[in-house]
Write a protein that binds this DNA or RNA. Structure first.
Lengths: 202, 202
DNA sequence: AAACGTACGGAGACAGTCTCCGTTTTGTCA
DNA sequence: TGACAAAACGGAGACTGTCTCCGTACGTTT
């Protein structure tokens, strides 16, 4: 019995698992090309399956997105550990973590929108992921605050939302001469303490 | 040719003018209720006209929005003048102007999205409006920079985009205990100089 | 009041979302 | 292995929203 967690459940059909993986592959590429608002039926067609199959696996666009981001979650988790181990400076660690989240949030064009929505309607499959990131952000933030490197009144949720907002704006910023990360820098200037700020300006 | 100031243009039909005004009235209310992604055909139906008439007056959703915001543009312009006359402190003036834009950008739910899009595709009817606001923001910003109250490397376009981003995030922030204006404050801390910042913290 | 041109209205083509249900595939057990 | 039941598939089609085309109605001009 060791190793058998089977509660009288059937083993899932192999075609189901294969379809699921295939859908994720196709969706990953399709969303990369067309942004996250691309047609779901088109994804089904490209995957060679019917719309019904797609919707059975992923009832909503958010569910599909959540599954796609799952893989990247692990990647970000690894990055988090790396930062915590290698970076002894708490403010730098927080900055690196926010940068990492910013990159994660721009994995697909238009991604910040459903992420923000997930913060409000917590029935979204993305809500859990967001919550985890907020918790991690809070950990980094509190460390920086203990060291007097971040303003004490700032909260992790606000920073997460700020990162989302900066990523949202980035697609418009790119069209201009200003760096796409201009808002990320503004944001950093926002959470840092004056001492921290003066250091960055030097 | 001589003496004719008329460009050979006919005077517009009265029913056309009336329809236009009526559409704007209805759209204003409808967008207030359903956000800017509400159905255009529904607006036409509520206005008692056919879809064709709506689209003849306003070929795109952006054109309709631009017309709706026109009235508020005047209002904001008045506010700009009031700030310039009454507020002698350049940093406070900039802060007030950004606040005013933030309110303007949340006139309808979802408004920041097309505004950001207008910054990229300048064929949008909203692009002209945005450009004007960026120019005004630059004027306030430069005054504050001259007084050493705003960081010299910040640009008006970035601040405008930042205000949009903060307004975009505000709808998610409201659901939480954190103030909806938390990001606006973060943004202000971002553009202010350290001296300015210390003052706000006191 | 007749003629002219502008504007109206809505039918309908098109695209996307999502569901229902008959058909096919798969796993299980004799 | 064969047969049965459960699971999954696929696509037709209902529904919603966008946008256009063109016959009709109306306002303006002479």
């Amino acid at each position: 019995m060791a190793g058998s967690t089977n509660d009288g459940e059937r083993k899932p059909r192999t075609d189901k698992q294969r379809n699921r993986a295939h859908i994720l592959d196709v969706a990953e590429q399709y969303f990369s090309e067309h942004g996250i608002t691309g047609s779901l039926d088109a994804i089904a067609k490209r995957a060679g399956i019917g719309p019904g199959t797609l919707y059975r696996h992923f009832p909503t666009r958010e569910a599909l997105l959540a599954a796609l981001l799952q893989a990247r979650d692990d990647e970000l988790e690894a990055r988090r550990k790396a930062i915590q181990e290698q970076e002894s400076d708490s403010a730098a660690a927080l900055a690196q973590w926010l940068t990492a989240m910013g990159q994660w949030a721009t994995a697909f064009d238009g991604l910040p929108e459903p992420l923000r929505a997930a913060l409000v309607e917590d029935k979204s499959p993305l809500a859990l992921t967001c919550q985890g990131f907020i918790t991690t952000t809070d950990a980094f933030l509190r460390a920086a605050q203990r060291d007097g490197r971040a303003r004490p009144e700032v909260r992790g949720r606000e920073l997460f939302l700020g990162v989302l907002a900066a990523s949202w704006a980035a697609s418009a910023a790119m069209a201009d001469e200003s760096s796409p990360s201009a808002l990320h820098h503004l944001l950093q200037a926002g959470w840092a303490t004056p001492a921290e700020r003066a250091e960055h300006l030097s």
